[in-house]
Deep mutational scan, measured.
Amino acid sequence: SGNANTETLPSGWEQRKDPHGRTYYVDHNTRTTTWERPQPLPPGWERR
């Protein structure tokens, strides 16, 4: 039932692989990409 990797990503993020097989992350909220895995927001924090 779903990929465990995507469940731990913050809302709006997606994990992808480039043509060389390297994993990167897409932030659909800001339309940016990063090599660093995004950290889920700490409990009690809200994204503004």
Rank of each mutant, 00 (worst) to 15 (best):
A4D: 14
T34K: 03
G44M: 09
R37Q: 07
V26D: 05
T34C: 06
T23N: 11
T34P: 00
N29C: 04
L41I: 14
W13A: 03
P43T: 09
P40K: 14
P43S: 12
S11N: 08
G12S: 03
P40W: 05
N5Y: 09
W35T: 04
Y24G: 04
N29I: 02
T32G: 03
P10K: 02
R47K: 15
E46W: 01
T30V: 02
T30S: 09
R48K: 13
W13S: 03
W13H: 00
P19V: 06
N29Q: 11
P19Q: 10
T34N: 03
E7A: 05
Y24T: 04
T6N: 14
K17Q: 13
N3K: 13
T34W: 02
N5T: 12
T30F: 05
R31E: 09
G12H: 06
T32A: 04
R22H: 10
R22S: 10
D27G: 02
P38F: 00
K17L: 09
L9I: 05
T6Y: 07
P42H: 06
Y25P: 07
P43R: 10
G2Y: 11
T33A: 06
R16L: 10
L41Y: 05
T30I: 02
G2F: 11
G21H: 06
P43M: 12
N5M: 08
G2R: 12
T23Q: 02
Y25C: 01
T8P: 14
P10C: 05
E36C: 14
P42Y: 06
R31D: 07
Q39E: 13
R37T: 09
L9V: 07
P19I: 11
E7H: 11
L9M: 12
R37C: 06
W35Y: 12
N3E: 12
L41N: 14
Q15V: 13
W13G: 03
T33C: 12
G21C: 02
Y24S: 02
Y24M: 02
R47E: 15
H20D: 15
R37S: 06
R47L: 11
Q39D: 13
R16D: 03
E46A: 08
H20I: 04
D27P: 01
T33L: 04
T32Q: 12
E46Q: 12
L9C: 05
T32Y: 02
N3D: 11
R37N: 06
E36V: 15
E7W: 07
R48Y: 14
P38M: 02
T32D: 02
G21S: 02
W45I: 15
D18W: 00
